[in-house]
Design a protein around this nucleic acid. Structure first.
Lengths: 197, 197
DNA sequence: TTTATAAGATGACGAGTGTAATCTTTAGTA
DNA sequence: TACTAAAGATTACACTCGTCATCTTATAAA
């Protein structure tokens, strides 16, 4: 390596970061390789020194997105009082702040439908990412054992993603707030109420 | 009009039908105008006799998708015994059949995230379509008045869409069935149980 | 039967895409 | 200091896209 030893890693990281945001905000086909590289402060030519192709970046960018989302929720939960952690996570997930920041928010709410259309090989790699996302958030869910917690996770989080993306599809700000608040009430009483007892 | 009077309407309809299916199955950018017209049995040139552009078709195709979905669910409910109608709708929505037929299924589960990225003018037109979709299904929801029913609708249906799209993003058939069945149990007990009393 | 008009087919254009080959620049090593 | 391997820039290519101008065909009206 003739360039500084950390420089390639940093560049690699910047590309993934730019893609993680752009894919969630505009879809993975919303911006080309050239645009992504520009956001990362480079030109498109160097892209293939870091990735074999756009598909390769796709998985990494989605993995980054899930990591960021989990980080944020875990951090929010850490600041919440005991027994209010899941409640805090739900409130944060179904907030106007999250709605207005798709590029920095949950991947499911922005890209799940697109992931469903990917080739099985790509989907399988993403499933592994989703699994580790789930495992990180599992401790905050109610349930006697992990199996029960997983089951609840797989209902709660995809559901909230559906609510969030539907709220984003609306134009009327009042309607957006209504659907979010109705869903907050419902999911807190269904999942976070019994866990605080 | 020099061509048969009904022919244009029929062609127009075939284009919308092809788009309604293709957009849900592959995303609105998954196939070009030429491909859509081929599916409708025509060449790409005639497209602009029917629509001002692809955006114009977009709204019509999504409207068609919502209509079809509502039709199917209302028809399923009509065949169900009294007090079991919402239960039937939920079971049908969260079924493997629906999962495996994105092109003929719920628009929210396939295109909501994409709709959220459209220009406000396009989104506003689609919101009107979504409203009429909601009104058609409102009678099947529990609640004292329409406001309460609407509130429940806006939680239940977007949530189920989120579950369905997440299940579609998975590769393992067993995992797909598990998430669908967990969600069925949950939503039936949360929404359809009290309505049958 | 002729004519007018609109539907549909054909072909082409410019813009944008992902990818690759080929330069140029960088800094660690000899 | 000279050399070299790798990062990044430049340029180019084949391809697809939405759109439009133009041509052909079909049929209702005269």
């Amino acid at each position: 390596m003739r360039y500084p030893v950390e420089q390639k890693a940093e560049t690699h990281d910047r590309i993934i970061e730019a893609a993680a945001r752009s894919f969630r905000e505009h879809g993975s086909e919303g911006q080309g390789v050239a645009g992504l590289m520009k956001e990362a402060g480079l030109t498109h030519g160097g892209f293939y020194r870091h990735f074999t192709g756009k598909d390769d970046l796709y998985v990494d960018a989605i993995a980054r997105g899930f990591q960021q989302t989990a980080d944020k929720m875990i951090m929010a939960a850490a600041r919440a009082p005991h027994g209010e952690q899941l409640r805090t996570i739900i409130e944060r997930y179904l907030s106007m702040e999250h709605l207005e920041d798709p590029g920095g928010g949950c991947v499911l709410s922005t890209l799940a439908a697109e992931i469903a259309r990917q080739r099985p090989a790509v989907r399988a790699r993403i499933n592994a990412v989703m699994k580790s996302y789930r495992e990180r958030l599992l401790p905050f869910l109610p349930g006697r054992d992990d199996a029960e917690k997983r089951c609840r996770f797989m209902v709660l989080f995809p559901s909230m993603a559906g609510v969030l993306m539907t709220a984003r599809a609306m134009t009327d700000p009042a309607a957006r707030k209504e659907i979010l608040s109705a869903a907050r009430r419902f999911y807190i009483s269904a999942f976070a109420q019994q866990s605080s007892r």
